[in-house]
Amino acid sequence: MRTDSTIQRDVLAELEWEPSVTHEHIGVAVTNGIVTLSGLVPNYVEKLAAEEAVRRVAGVRAVAEDIKVRWPGDPKTSDTEIAERICRMFSWDAVIPEKKIKVRVEGSRVTLTGEVDHRFQADAARKAAGRINGVISVANLLTVTEVPAVDDVKDRIEQAFKRNAILDAATISVIADGGTITLGGRVHAWREREMAERAAWAAPGVTAVRDQIIIA
């Protein structure tokens, strides 16, 4: 008697082999020889073709088919599509360490897990995931690597401000209390304030940033 895992493997291979089926978005589960298909296809013909392909596999006793037809103009908001778009957005953002972050989507709810080096990376990942159409909520379970705060953290942040072509380092104050950084002073625009905060988060050992910069 063929095992469920063997049948599942062969069903996946048969779907991939069948040229008339877009197999990438079809899920396959097998219990006691009963195959359950789920996922999305672009038209009804492919839906039928997928079912026929499964029935050709030896050991399949029955097919429970839950594939949905997703027309080209329909919103791309299935869990699989949301996950793919989040991963793609992560790969485009140089700030987000995509290889360190795992994405799970269930019922349009996103869960991010893994370990990153800086808090601003976790925040950037949460914000990016939340911008995807169809996302209901984002559970940010990312942890930040614990790095001891360096003695010259204040100087490092101030030097980062001076290297920045947009920021006027002379107008921004930095107070360091262990891993907590308090930023003060004035800038001309929100973008400058965000850049200053991000620079502070990038310093080794920073665990909190209190942004008290005023937009003048």
Rank of each mutant, 00 (worst) to 15 (best):
N43I: 07
E16L: 10
A58E: 15
P75T: 11
W17F: 12
K99S: 09
K102S: 09
V35N: 01
Y44F: 11
A176W: 02
D66F: 08
V60L: 09
A149S: 13
F90Q: 00
P148C: 00
V138N: 05
R119K: 05
A94C: 07
L183Y: 06
T111A: 12
L40E: 15
G184S: 03
G179H: 01
R210F: 12
R198F: 07
K102T: 10
A199M: 14
V174F: 04
R198C: 09
G107D: 13
Q121V: 02
G114H: 03
T171I: 01
R85P: 00
R193Y: 06
A64V: 12
V21I: 13
R126C: 04
I101C: 05
V35P: 00
D4K: 11
A122C: 02
T111F: 08
V209Y: 04
K127I: 10
L112I: 11
A189R: 15
G114L: 00
L37A: 04
A124T: 08
R119P: 00
R191Y: 14
G178S: 05
I101Q: 00
L183S: 11
F161H: 08
R56I: 01
E158G: 00
I213R: 00
G59S: 09
G39E: 06
A139V: 14
H25A: 10
I86K: 08
P19G: 09
I214C: 11
G178Q: 01
A125V: 09
I213P: 03
R61A: 12
L48H: 13
T80P: 05
G114I: 05
W201Q: 00
K102I: 04
A169T: 01
R61D: 12
A160G: 10
S5W: 11
F120N: 00
I7V: 07
V95Y: 04
H188T: 12
E115N: 10
E14C: 05
A29F: 03
K76I: 06
H188P: 00
M1Y: 04
D151W: 00
V105H: 03
G178K: 02
E24I: 00
W17S: 10
S38H: 09
N43A: 10
G27Q: 03
N43K: 10
S38E: 01
V28P: 06
A124M: 08
A29Q: 14
L141H: 15
D74W: 09
G73T: 15
I26K: 07
K154Q: 14
Q8S: 10
A202P: 01
R2L: 15
D151S: 14
R70I: 07
L141V: 01
R193Q: 14
D4W: 03
T31Y: 05
V30S: 03
E18Q: 14
D152G: 01
A122F: 02
S91G: 02
E52H: 13
R156F: 08
P97F: 05
A200D: 13
Y44V: 12
P75R: 12
V60A: 05
D74G: 01
E146M: 07
V21P: 07
T77E: 09
A125H: 08
L183V: 12
D66Q: 11
G134F: 12
L167I: 06
H25E: 10
V54E: 00
K76Q: 13
I215V: 11
E81T: 10
A64C: 07
K47N: 09
K100C: 07
R104G: 04
G184F: 01
E81D: 09
